[in-house]
Design a protein around this nucleic acid. Structure first.
Length: 1008
RNA sequence: GCCCGGGUGGUGGAACUGGUAGACACGACAGACUUAAAAUCUGUUGGCCUCACGGUCAUGCGGGUUCGAUUCCCGCCCCGGGCACCA
């Protein structure tokens, strides 16, 4: 062997093995019985390329998966690209390059950089969120959400730059001003698509604990806080009519709902405060005597961000709505109504009742001299004195006074009692509130997945004939769905709401004929059938010729079996046989509304109906009362309102992004897609008339909310993932990524996953079993790595000089994995020195004179096997590496080093420095890859120490230490300790009060 | 402001479940090798007092619990992440 070939030449070795591993397919051994799925948060392929901070988490999963491979598991470790989003779009605007082109170029660079690090990625499974073959399924998931009533439109404020005439991301703001032109940014309301994530709030919360997720507690806490469940009550404050002319507006008679968690303070509520944006303010505009001032105040707030508005340092501002008063439902006293900046429309009901027991309310009352009352007493009498004198605010809990029959109760006792008392009067109800809001899901941008919907103005504007078909117990209480009927009439539709014959002992055929005799059903008819009305509707649909526009089933009875109890009259009412084909051909659109919380109607029946009629919307709601017997009219209106918004059919997916000339927003706030008539204009699948495509695109979060599923089955054309394959690999065993994703990305992905579970697309209720956050790597100057500071370190340079193994080993050694740590190239030199020393150890093993087994090394070796195995499992890579350094230090000094011991070192090192380990493995005469070998087993008997250093303390201070055999009994150890000169000196002239003995560790002698 | 982390030598960090603070590295200093430098190897390396044995202080700051606290509790200070359109 020549001198030359003995030198550690990292470049040559790394290139050689990277190629061989891929050629041999060692990363594609998927047929072993045990599976392990390791997932990295996929990167955004930016133009700047990778810096050394990016791969830290990837190296960790790679170390982990290599150990799992050695432990005999099949490992899935994929990689892909999260490539939609703002930077590519801004780059496109600036450089007139199609974002797809820029993204493709960036991916090439990223991929080359990653491949040099020697990861176990199976590149055959690479995914790219911007690939139509991928986003086809992102769009498919959206359609399913839409069908299930989980996607809806609402007005949402966006950051609007009046001079650039464009919506701005929060990122593009600087002190409330536009980053580009420094104009003051306004809050402008725009129609946006939202996803009803709040419907999953409870499950997102409960499953954090129920499903034994191995997540750091801090992430779970952050998720819980983000969801922000709080139990309280909604209290209705009626508005007392002003004496003023003109008379009240229609909605003026509605009371204002206030959500509170502190209903125990209701008796001290002396004024009401609304969010400035509260819709009530506009609704009663004519009655507000100081409207001009109110309007001016509201305008000044438009330029203040929500975070600033609520920050505690800021002085509270507000203005009274003169001419409007409310009634406190507990005291029956009149209260002034104000609007103020600290009340947010997004939280609770956007209104609070204010009293002396909230610091912000208190401050506001003091500032504007609004009268206050006190009803909670603190225990401290001196404090009580001050509280009663209104000198200080007491926001805590305590005993109630000034509270009528609740006087003397504690806050906790009083809360349920007061809610009960008020709800008997119809002015309160217990309510759960969430801080979490629904997900604003649309962006007015080019570079995102197009939302696959069509809007038809004709269908939307058209006046329809509604036919309400009530259920079993009839409409004896009056008009069935009265508010809904009134609302539809107000919109100009006609509503036929018959009182059907024989409701106590119904005959379905008789009811069908009654309807047919009394109204004309045609293609502009919309049928709404509730409960038993569902069967009537089905039978009716069998008997008509021509089709109705839409059939809305509201918790319909479609079989004679009920979940709660038998109803013989219903069972006898018809034959329960349906001609589904006929029914289906007679309906253009089907909507099914179902009660998910307390189902009276069997879930299987609803499912069957949905499938058999191919419902284009199934809305699962939790009605306030079971089975929609009380008013759920707004929910039903919501289902009806969706008319004219039509989902693309699945076979039209993917709906591809068109080529455009300009990527800039349009100036109206609409997406650039709105400026492409060939793309926007289409025909309505319902009426065949002219219609427009939805021009909003999805947010970047969409593609990253399900990518982990696509890796499992990346080329499936029939489903987003094959269910059997999903069962094989899910849930993800290990998910590693940045702490910045601890709330939103993880909530979004969990939400989608639960939804996919509900519709049967996946078999697991949680996607990620174990989750670990990676800490940042800062630049050597302690700042973040950024082009701006020109302190970026490129992994390519480190690999060139020191090798990929050194890079990997250093990033694992630099410190605790989750912590942010500054880069140190000197540190890389240090681990490179370590690798050189390992390399040189090979010579010793090849020397036959040095091949006898050394028991001291063997003990250390087995301690090291245990520590490295446990530390990798626990993500304590830094201490795993330092233990290997201790072992190598000892091996260098040992007078012998047999091949067997050195081979174990190589195996332990192989996850961290795979190239070098593989090379040495082969040089030692192995012909198979080291990754086909077995991870070493730890033998506790070999690892055991025979002697320990024992510590003697006097009054807690270490005074002596000496060696004792392990397990030496207490009596003997104490006797020896008391004889020691170093100890005796400290005991002289003192009384021994106490002796604390810890086996094999220490003795503390307490003296005085 | 609110929520979640973190703070230990000149530097990155170690310390099991409350039991020897500073493992392992980096840097620095000294020595060996070399004409020389680099590389490599050997040794020293928290502060203060001491020739030394040793003593004493010390884990962001201030208190507390305990025989004993980097670890547990209370109150502060500083730094990082998140706060819903950066990803």
């Amino acid at each position: 062997m020549s001198q030359e070939s003995q030198k550690y030449n990292h470049g040559e070795i790394e290139e050689k093995w990277q190629k061989q591993w891929v050629d041999q397919g060692i990363y594609q051994q998927y047929d072993r019985p045990e599976k392990f799925y390791a997932l990295d948060m996929f990167p955004y392929p930016s133009g700047a390329g990778l810096h050394v901070g990016h791969p830290k988490g990837y190296i960790a999963t790679d170390v982990f998966t290599r150990m799992k491979m050695l432990q005999g598991k099949s490992v899935l470790h994929p990689m892909g690209w999260d490539a939609f989003g703002l930077p590519a779009e801004n780059y496109a605007i600036k450089n007139k390059v199609h974002p797809a082109k820029a993204v493709a170029e960036n991916i090439v660079v990223f991929k080359q950089q990653l491949q040099k690090i020697g990861f176990t990625y199976d590149w055959d499974r690479e995914v790219n969120t911007t690939d139509p073959a991928y986003y086809r399924w992102t769009q498919w998931i959206f359609l399913k959400l839409f069908e299930h009533g989980l996607a809806y439109e609402a007005d949402e404020p966006i950051n609007w730059c009046p001079s650039c005439k464009t919506g701005l991301a929060n990122e593009d703001l600087e002190d409330g001003k536009c980053e580009r032109c420094s104009s003051v940014v306004e809050q402008k309301k725009m129609r946006q698509w939202k996803l009803r994530m709040t419907a999953y709030a409870d499950r997102l919360l409960e499953d954090l604990d129920k499903t034994k997720l191995q997540w750091e507690e801090s992430i779970r806490i952050q998720q819980r806080n983000w969801i922000g469940r709080s139990e309280g009550a909604i209290v209705k404050f009626s508005i007392s009519p002003p004496k003023a002319d003109p008379p009240l507006a229609d909605n003026f008679q509605f009371p204002i709902d206030v959500f509170t968690t502190r209903i125990d303070t209701i008796f001290s509520g002396t004024f009401l405060v609304l969010a400035p944006e509260h819709e009530f303010v506009d609704a009663v505009k004519e009655h507000i005597q100081n409207w001009n001032e109110v309007e001016t105040y509201r305008q000044t707030l438009q330029t203040v961000s929500l975070i600033d508005r609520t920050s505690a340092g800021r002085e509270i501002t507000g203005i009274e709505l003169k001419g409007i008063t409310a009634i406190n439902p507990a005291t029956k006293e009149s209260m002034p109504v104000w609007i103020a900046d600290f009340v947010l429309a997004q939280y609770g009901t956007g209104a609070v009742f204010a009293d002396a027991h909230d610091t912000r309310d208190f401050a506001m009352a003091k500032k504007y001299r609004i009268p206050l009352k006190v009803s909670i007493q603190p225990e401290d009498p001196a404090l009580l004195e001050q509280v009663k004198a209104l000198a200080v605010c007491y926001p805590g809990e305590g005993k109630l006074f000034n509270s009528q029959q609740f006087d003397g109760m504690t806050s906790a006792q009083a809360r349920p009692k007061i809610v009960e008392w008020l709800s008997q009067q119809g002015s309160a109800k217990p309510t759960v509130n969430y801080k979490m809001r629904d997900w604003v899901f649309s962006r007015q941008r080019y570079w995102g997945e197009p939302i696959p919907l069509i809007h038809c103005e004709q269908c939307k504007k058209k006046k329809y004939q509604y036919v309400f078909i009530h259920g079993f117990t009839g409409s004896s209480q009056g008009v069935f769905f009265p508010w809904l009927a009134q609302e539809l009439k107000r919109q100009g539709h006609t509503v036929f709401c018959p009182d059907l014959p024989n409701t106590e002992h119904p005959n379905i055929q008789e009811q069908v004929e009654y309807i047919l005799d009394n109204t004309a059903i045609n293609e502009d008819t919309i049928l709404v059938g509730h409960s038993l009305g569902g069967v009537v509707m089905m039978k009716l649909l069998e008997q008509i010729s021509g089709s109705v526009r839409r059939a809305v089933f509201v918790d319909p009875v479609v079989s004679k079996t009920f979940n709660d109890h038998a109803r013989p009259d219903v069972e006898k009412s018809n034959d329960w046989k349906f001609d589904y084909a006929k029914i289906k051909s007679n309906i253009r659109e089907v909507v099914v509304l179902a009660d998910a919380r307390h189902p009276i109607i069997r879930v299987e029946d609803i499912e069957k109906l949905r499938t058999v009629l191919n419902a284009n919307q199934t809305i699962t709601v939790h009605p306030e009362a079971d089975h929609f017997t009380a008013s759920q009219e707004p929910e039903i209106l919501r289902a009806i309102d969706s008319i004219g918004t039509i989902a693309l059919s699945e076979d039209e997916l993917p709906l591809k992004l068109p080529e455009v000339e300009k990527y800039e927003p349009t100036g109206t706030g609409e997406s650039p897609l709105a400026g492409i008539p060939e793309w926007v204009n289409t025909t309505c699948p319902q009426c065949g008339g002219a219609a427009r495509r939805e021009t909003n695109t999805m947010p970047q979060w969409a593609g990253s909310s399900w990518y982990y599923l696509r890796y499992i089955d990346p080329r499936n054309g029939a489903a987003l993932v094959d269910l059997n394959k999903e069962k094989e690999w899910m849930p993800v065993d290990l998910y590693v990524g940045g702490a910045e994703h601890a709330t939103r990305h993880l909530l979004y992905a969990r939400f989608w996953h639960k939804f996919l579970y509900d519709i049967g697309s996946v078999s697991t209720i949680e996607p990620f079993k174990r989750l670990i956050n990676v800490g940042l790597i800062l630049a050597e100057d302690g700042r973040k790595m950024s082009k701006r500071w020109s302190n970026v370190i490129n992994p390519d340079d480190i690999i060139e000089h020191y090798g990929a193994d050194s890079l990997r080993l250093y990033e694992m050694f630099m410190g605790p994995f989750t912590q942010s740590i500054a880069w140190s190239t000197d540190g890389v030199k240090g681990v490179r020195r370590f690798l050189d020393r390992v390399w040189n150890l090979k010579e010793r093993t090849l020397n036959p004179k040095l091949s006898t087994l050394n028991p001291n090394i063997d003990r250390l070796l087995h301690q090291t096997i245990k520590k490295v195995t446990d530390d990798i499992e626990g993500f304590r890579f830094n201490t795993a590496v330092s233990q290997m350094m201790i072992l190598v230090n000892a091996m260098e000094k040992a007078d012998s080093l047999p091949l067997s011991q050195f081979s174990i070192l190589l195996l332990l090192l192989s996850p961290f420095a795979p190239h070098m380990a593989e090379e040495l493995w082969h040089q030692l005469g192995n012909s198979e890859s080291i990754f086909e070998a077995q991870w070493p087993q730890y033998d506790p008997s070999l690892a055991k120490e025979s002697e320990v250093e024992f510590v003697v303390q006097v009054n807690g201070k270490v005074r002596d230490r000496f060696a004792i055999p392990v397990g030496l009994p207490e009596v003997q150890v104490i006797a020896q300790s008391l004889e020691r000169d170093a100890v005796r000196g400290w005991l002289e002239g003192k009384q021994i009060r106490k002796k604390i003995f810890v086996q094999d560790t220490l003795l503390n002698i307490v003296v005085s």
